[in-house]
Write a protein that binds this DNA or RNA. Sequence first.
RNA 1: AGUGCGAUGGUGUAACGGUAGCAUCACAGACUCUGACUCUGUUUGUCUAGGUUCGAAUCCUAGUCGCACUACCA
Length: 555
Amino acid sequence: MSEEKSLNFLEEIIEDDIKAGTHAGRVHTRFPPEPNGYLHIGHATSICLNFGLAKKYNGKCNLRFDDTNPVTEETEYVESIKADIKWLGFQWDNEFYASDYFEKLYGFAVALIKKGLAYVDDSTAEEIAATKGNLVTPGINSPYRDRTIEENLRLFEEMRAGKYKDGEKTLRAKVDMAQPNLLLRDPLMYRIKHEHHHRTGDAWCIYPMYDFAHGQSDSIEEITHSICTLEFIHHRPLYNWFIEQLGIFPSHQYEFARRNLTFTVMSKRKLLQLVNENHVAGWDDPRMPTISGMRRRGYPPEALRQFSDTIGIAKRENIVDVGLLEFCVREHLNKTSSRVMAVLDPVKLVVTNYPEGTEDVFDIENNPEDPNGGTRKVPFSRELWIEREDFMEEAPKKFFRLAPGNNVRLKGAYIVKCTGCLKDTDGNITEIHCTYLPESKSGNDTSGLTVKGTIHWVSIPHAKTAEVRMYDRLFRVEDPSNEDGNFKDYINPDSMHVLNSVFIEPALANANAGDKVQFMRKGYFCVDRDSTPEKLVFNRTVTLKDAWAKEQRKA
RNA sequence: AGUGCGAUGGUGUAACGGUAGCAUCACAGACUCUGACUCUGUUUGUCUAGGUUCGAAUCCUAGUCGCACUACCA
């Protein structure tokens, strides 16, 4: 058995670089979101990757906002992104903005013009598209390609000065219109946008394109390992071309395959539709794959980090089973969350031989997984709520719960024997009856009886009422984006199911938003921010594994 | 069609010419005052066809399949 965890391909590259003394063995990464939306689980893995590599190799990781398009970007998103990264448990070494570099980038552009490697083009967007060629045919040169350096310098300065309208001119790199890589066919470096920028205001009316901002920003920050997703692989030759022509710090780009998740969608466009068309309640709806949604759902940051670590990193197409994420969530919650009793679908249980008007108070351990978890007081009385599904009038042999003649342990209390039930005129069960064994008191059991089943309960006179939102997967199919028709056709109609009168034990009365608990035998839940002192609201984070449900499905 | 990237159990990921491993899932059992957790065990995999080699997931050749690229988005 090897103790060493094998390296992923990026770690191998980094370790080779360190060995070779590249950049004196320094490791510096960055997480470069565009502040135009909320972060999702895909970003979370990228964050874990970039910050994780920096940490592992004693390096640094910058947070850099790629804010080169003033039309879509807003400060609100900057703040949510920062909050999400912190919540995930990471702290950036520097907070930078591509817009910090606008003056420098302008200087780089002027330098390229002076080298005869960039020109101002008067062509319209349509003309540029039309002369670009396609995958199999080369493009043709722009008629403005051979302007003199002096003219280009003057025109570019005028572009900056605001002399031209949006779209009237662009600055293009002079590379090669015959390149098979379309990105190298004289890519745009600057476009004119008379728009207000969230940070630079109205100081600029020309804005650099991604390709003339990202690599340069990496270089300015002396990023050693610039990690991005696979769709940027075609940009790498251009990334390198600019750096070489400018003679600036040689950052290097590496690509990995973005992680996809089953039963959800990840593209910003689709997530936006879900929000705008009210299929969900907002970006942080607990069903959303956003970091804020998962936070509200009750997923702990440790689980997201473990998930990222477990799925690893590679360059092949993938779609990770959401069950693996749920496993990570359960694993962490199992160790950390208190057990409490809550009855989601209540039916009354009467302990007929328990004296009326009296009660017991039991000390029940909070978490069997945590020896320091302590205990809490749980009141018991003659009338209890139990789950409707924990009783069957005619039960199969493997049903270990309440059925006439069966013995069952009431968690933390007594063993009871079911004696029958009452029904209304329609045959619905309204009340279940049982008798208890006083000598079977929990922790002090001298009855000598062993029972197969233990069920949870809440004392009726002591119970508090709560709202519980039962969340399930947002989509009915594994890969909604890959089905025929519109992805929205595959939304799961039962992705949220609200229970308005769930009975919970009184110890829960003081719970605060964000608190995470296990409702015994039912799953992990967290207190939603919609909670009020009058009415607690819980979100179901994830169910427990349920072998009995599986058994029934087979039957 | 051109260029690039990729292909290992259901899913994700290792093995760097020398025993196909890990996690999850599934299944079976043990344990259990949660049908949870934990523990034990089991099933399932190298895209295809050639070649090199004592030996190939790994190297070579050819093919197949998948993905990406033709925004004044990032």
